[in-house]
Design a protein around this nucleic acid. Sequence first.
DNA 1: TTTTATTTACGAAAATATTCGTACGTTTGT
DNA 2: ACAAACGTACGAATATTTTCGTAAATAAAA
Lengths: 127, 127
Amino acid sequence: MTTIGKPTDSELEILNILWSKGPSTVRDVHEVLEKNKEAGYTTTLKLMQIMHEKKLLNRDASSKSHIYTANVSQEKTQGQLVKRFIDNVFSGSASQLVMQALGNHKTNKAELDEIKRYLKEIEKKNK
Amino acid sequence: MTTIGKPTDSELEILNILWSKGPSTVRDVHEVLEKNKEAGYTTTLKLMQIMHEKKLLNRDASSKSHIYTANVSQEKTQGQLVKRFIDNVFSGSASQLVMQALGNHKTNKAELDEIKRYLKEIEKKNK
DNA sequence: TTTTATTTACGAAAATATTCGTACGTTTGT
DNA sequence: ACAAACGTACGAATATTTTCGTAAATAAAA
């Protein structure tokens, strides 16, 4: 298994767009990015080219406007990022992260219920 | 209130040491760092000097070996990092982060119990 | 066809983070 | 007093990430 380096913040923004919108051109992605921040078109282009070199993205170059797709799964990437984050910030303690996340973010009832359901599932499996 | 920029990974390593060991000299910190990775002494020194400039650290320069302490609280810093992380990686959904964290990290029973207790507390407050 | 717009490729500047060498002062040991 | 060890200050080299200008190719419009 080849371990892919941590995507940078900018790369993650692009991955998020591709995960949510599916196959997209540079312009598609750029238009979404522009909603939230100033950015030049060639900047987005360059980033996506680099991500393609790094195998973070696939591209179909058969038409003039190349079409990019994420080449890493959202779940797996999130998992890697969470693991690293827990190690860096909470010395490896997942429960500390969980409590910090629940404490500061005013979580609503629906979310809490979902988490409780999830906890029960885990406990069932652990038996 | 002055918002302090996100500490880099290296800075976070140093903060973690200071949070756990309390007031320390550069050498103290450096010896801990060395256990986990190659690092030159002046590199650690420089980092801590920069962190002092940025007001991340306090220092007492009254003795020859300056004594540094963290100038940001662990809880608050972790909170800021968690918030940013949730925004960047989970589009603001704390519960998604929680489930991802619980799912991948094989959490043991003691930790799960602690989390359940914590959930109950939150629910009580929300009433 | 000629011009205009769109897109890729590419190099390099700018910004940020990390690492280290060296000078110089202070303390410690001989 | 002298040398060795230790510590800070500081500039600069590296590395990494982000940004953008410009040229060349292709497509679309006039």
